[in-house]
Write a protein that binds this DNA or RNA. Structure first.
Lengths: 84, 84
DNA sequence: GTCTTCTGTCGGCATAATCCGACATTGTAG
DNA sequence: CTACAATGTCGGATTATGCCGACAGAAGAC
């Protein structure tokens, strides 16, 4: 992947309201970090194919359940850079 | 639970870094909304016993996987009131 | 004290999620 | 064009999960 990005991407924050939006955010931060799916998958200890599906917004029951709870409570989930 | 809370609780935001912290946040917002587990479970379409375990911070693989990915990316997850 | 409501927790079962490997597709560089 | 890297996607086997029902404990009202 030759896309050389020397700029610390400071996009976001990302609002998470669905599996798809979570996937979008993860992909954004992964590419901003200059990582491939294979690299991140290994770092996080999971299968690359699973990460691919996660970024694609694959709908899973557990995630949808949690998001339903939060929606009913009027709570919003946000992802942003920790920026240590 | 007769704790009548007419006040719109404005605590938070909550940082989510583990299943336990997610549970804490959910419990906080649920009680702030004056809801019982049974009520919220019905609203969200899930079992009350599951919601109880969720609030107790039961560790599930999927949630831990997602949190691992975010940690590796240096991304933080935050919950706060939508405050429509 | 009793009655009631809310919550924690357990086991068994149906099914949903993940791993693993493989192959197809896409994009980029040369 | 070829070659390579990254990603999408698909079965099948294994594992994890949530539902369901039930019971027990805690806390409050009376």
């Amino acid at each position: 992947m030759p896309t050389e990005d020397t700029h610390k991407g400071s996009k976001g924050p990302f609002r998470v309201y669905s599996p798809a939006s979570l996937g979008d955010a993860i992909r954004h931060y992964r590419t901003a970090a200059g990582l491939t799916q294979a690299q991140l998958a290994e770092m996080a200890g999971l299968q690359r194919s699973y990460l691919s599906e996660l970024e694609s917004g694959k709908e899973t029951e557990q995630l949808k359940r949690i998001l339903r709870v939060l929606r009913q409570l009027g709570v919003r989930m946000t992802l942003d850079e920790a920026d240590w």
